[in-house]
Simulated scan of single mutants.
Amino acid sequence: MPALDPTVRHLYVHVPFCPTICPYCDFHVLTRRAGLVERYLQRVEEEAARLADTYRVDLDTVYIGGGTPSFLREAEMEALASSVRRHLGWGQVENTLEINPGTVSPARAAFWRDLGFDRASVGVQSLDDATLRFLGRQHDARQGREAVTTLADRGFRVSGDLITAVPGQPLESDIRGLVDLGVGHVSAYTLTIEPGTEFARRGVTVEEDDERVGFEQTEAQLTELGFTRYEISNYARPGEESRHNLAYWYGRTYLGLGPGAAGHYPAEGTEQRAEGLQHPTPLTLRRTNPHLHEWLMGTEGQTLPIDGGEYVTDALFMGLRLREGVNLADLSSRSGVNVRERYAEAMTVNIRRGLLTFDGHRLRATPQGWWVLNRVVTDFLEG
């Protein structure tokens, strides 16, 4: 890649509303209350207009996540999509909607498709009813299967989410069942117990051996079934990779719209340059919006200036998640940092440990390096 593109080509929209809160979830989500969605939609309209006035935008991808975006009523979803289109445009390459299986019907699938969504990320999580009950999911296995087939029948590219390392989970049949439904993409995430969640309060734990088995079994089985592990947690048939998520892993800029949404913005031409940030000439800016009630009041989010060195370590942390790794010449061009020279020691140490490989162009994590990637990147932060 050449120098950073000053045009923002990707948009993430956060919808915080859920019918119920899953016991493992630590995202910014809440149940809907009277009038709250209407206030949310009005604020989305205002924030979308401000983003359009501030940045040069020509969207390739739109991703509406949450929360449970598919929980929105049809008029609400139409208002949300209209605000995005009116101020920021629509993705020319891919437009994804996160969908809970319990919200799917043939009519709703056709409605979402008519709004311009072409990719569905479906929170199946498991196709085993006992596992779904343990996870606190409100849908059952039958609804999960029907949701995937209904969306595929309406022309969506379908990605299915799976949670692994769940006690008693029949992972092999979960994977086989999801693939048999015809999905082109699978996102497989290890069950993680985050502080403050219901699972943490109940003392639920995940054994490292179970994590490792799920990590390795998922790759082995999906590879055998024709999928490529193109990122630590993501598998795709050829051409079915998530274009939007690849933007994150490639270190590209993107807009974050909605409460709790994070964005990665070009520094050039933004009003923050005139507000005297700590670094007078940051390479990019990262901003995280406040949670819903502060966001509704117009409270500004936290903005962090990213210099060349910080950009490199962020790009390595994200890019080493990819099977293809990171092209160090391109990263040096984008950041203005000689990556091979500055991080020679960290590279050498981790190559010797068998956690990284380098072919003269691309730095890649090995399977063992993926397993301890946080530790690998820590060496670069300290370098």
Rank of each mutant, 00 (worst) to 15 (best):
A188I: 15
R321Q: 09
A130I: 04
F156V: 11
H361E: 13
Y250R: 12
W112D: 13
R202V: 10
G123E: 05
V44D: 04
V376C: 02
G102Y: 03
P266M: 14
R145P: 05
V349D: 13
L41Q: 12
A267F: 14
G91I: 14
R334T: 09
L255R: 05
G177P: 01
G336D: 05
S335Q: 03
T190Q: 11
E47V: 13
Q221A: 10
V206N: 07
E207R: 03
D128R: 04
I306M: 04
D359H: 15
T103F: 02
T192E: 08
G269K: 10
A130P: 03
V13E: 05
H139A: 01
T366E: 10
W370K: 13
A3N: 00
A200R: 07
R50S: 13
V166Q: 02
G354H: 04
T68G: 00
G102M: 01
A81V: 15
G184I: 11
Y55G: 00
P367G: 05
E198L: 13
G91F: 07
Y12M: 08
M1G: 06
G325W: 12
A141W: 11
T303Q: 06
R39Y: 12
I306V: 15
A261K: 08
T270V: 07
A344K: 11
T223A: 12
N245V: 14
P195W: 05
T205E: 09
R145W: 06
E76I: 02
V13Y: 01
P238G: 03
L132P: 05
D58A: 15
V204S: 04
F199R: 13
F215W: 12
R334S: 10
R85A: 12
T61G: 05
E45G: 13
V204E: 13
E38S: 15
H139L: 01
D128N: 09
R137T: 02
T357P: 10
E194G: 01
F117G: 05
N350A: 11
E94F: 00
P305C: 04
R243T: 08
Y189W: 08
Y250I: 02
G336A: 06
L285P: 07
C18P: 04
N245R: 10
L355E: 01
Y63Q: 05
R252D: 12
G383R: 00
R364S: 02
S126P: 03
V57A: 01
W112N: 13
G66T: 14
E74V: 14
H139Q: 02
P367K: 06
A365T: 14
G226S: 06
L51Y: 09
G298Q: 09
E241I: 11
C25W: 00
A34E: 13
W370Y: 15
R375Y: 03
D209W: 09
A188V: 10
R321I: 15
R252W: 10
L277T: 15
G214L: 05
L283R: 06
V62Q: 11
G196Q: 06
L72R: 14
V44I: 15
T303I: 12
T223V: 11
F227S: 02
N350L: 05
A75T: 14
R43I: 15
E146Y: 01
R342D: 13
R137L: 01
G309V: 10
A274V: 10
V183Q: 08
H291G: 08
L51N: 07
H185E: 11
Q138H: 10
G136W: 04
A261C: 11
S83H: 02
T303S: 09
E341I: 00
